[in-house]
């Protein structure tokens, strides 16, 4: 019976993934006192959460944060990979240096940028002042905080895209580029008809990984803005963190957690469909 060989890994999967997920789903139908279940409440937690305006605002912020960070990371990462790949040894050295932000912990990244973007004594405010520009409140401005947070997130995560795309570029057969040369095509055609088609699956899977990270990311937001100002950077996951930490009844936080899970599953389905991994 070959299935017997899968039992250890299935048991491990059930223990570390299925059980916690199942418990959170079960908890979302419960009233709790901290982590102790107090009784089944049916769909009450779902009705409370989905009926509140703040949920939809947090969902909007979460998706804007995800989309903004993802687009910038993919663009920066792709550009860096293409440039460094065409730059020989210098490119290889620069690739290593560029990887640096990704190796930092998010708490450190947050602290660095919190200082850089401090409107009172941060270096960016200083240089803007020297250039005759007003830095404004930066992370303290509800209209600017989310775009700045997206920029910081992209700065931290684009090296990951760069590494994945670089690996994919190096696996493209040189003959394909030679064929374009023979046909009289230029760099544009090489990118359009060889590089890009080969990179799309990589960009898709990298994008999916990053989307899951962005949707569940909490540390960077806590350090940078704490979800403020005026809730401008409060994402669903940050609220899950707060709700679990600060509330007595964490059933509603479980509902938010399930929402994040559903969005992630939907994104996974979308990306696999996009990259043709399901249909082959």
């Amino acid at each position: 019976m070959p299935v017997i060989w899968f039992i250890p890994v299935l048991a491990l999967l059930a223990l570390v993934t299925l059980y916690p997920t199942g418990f959170v789903i079960w908890m979302s139908f419960q009233k709790t006192s901290y982590f102790q279940l107090q009784g089944f409440v049916g769909l009450r937690n779902y009705a409370t959460i989905l009926g509140s305006g703040s949920f939809w605002e947090m969902a909007r912020v979460s998706l804007a944060y995800l989309a903004g960070s993802l687009v910038l990371s993919l663009i920066f990462g792709l550009a860096a990979a293409l440039v460094f790949n065409a730059s020989g040894r210098t490119g290889a050295a620069l690739r290593v240096l560029t990887l640096f932000p990704w190796t930092l912990s998010m708490a450190v990244v947050g602290s660095i940028w919190l200082w850089m973007l401090n409107p009172s004594f941060g270096p960016i405010a200083y240089f803007m002042g020297q250039a005759g520009l007003s830095p404004g409140l930066m992370l303290g401005d509800p209209d600017v905080a989310l775009p700045l947070t997206i920029l910081v997130t992209a700065w931290w995560s684009f090296p990951y895209v760069m590494v994945m795309v670089s690996a994919a570029i190096q696996s493209i057969p040189a003959e394909l580029y030679e064929a374009i040369d023979i046909d009289g095509g230029g760099a544009r055609q090489k990118f359009r008809y060889v590089t890009l088609p080969h990179l799309i699956p990589t960009l898709g899977s990298t994008g999916l990984n990053l989307s899951i990270i962005y949707l569940t990311l909490v540390t960077l937001l806590i350090v940078l803005t704490g979800g403020g100002p005026l809730g401008a950077t409060t994402t669903l996951s940050l609220e899950v963190f707060r709700g679990t930490l600060q509330s007595v009844d964490i059933g509603p936080a479980a509902v938010l957690s399930i929402t994040v899970l559903v969005i992630n599953i939907a994104l996974g389905a979308f990306y696999t469909r996009l990259t043709g991994r399901v249909t082959g």
């Binding site: 002042g129 806590i222 350090v223 940078l224 803005t225 704490g226 403020g228 940050l238």
Partner: peptide, 18 residues
């Protein structure tokens, strides 16, 4: 000049503690 005369920290940053 560019100095906060008397800081009133309303803590937009600084974590979930508000």
């Amino acid at each position: 000049g560019n100095v906060v005369g008397y800081a009133v920290p309303l803590g937009t940053s600084g974590g979930p503690g508000g």
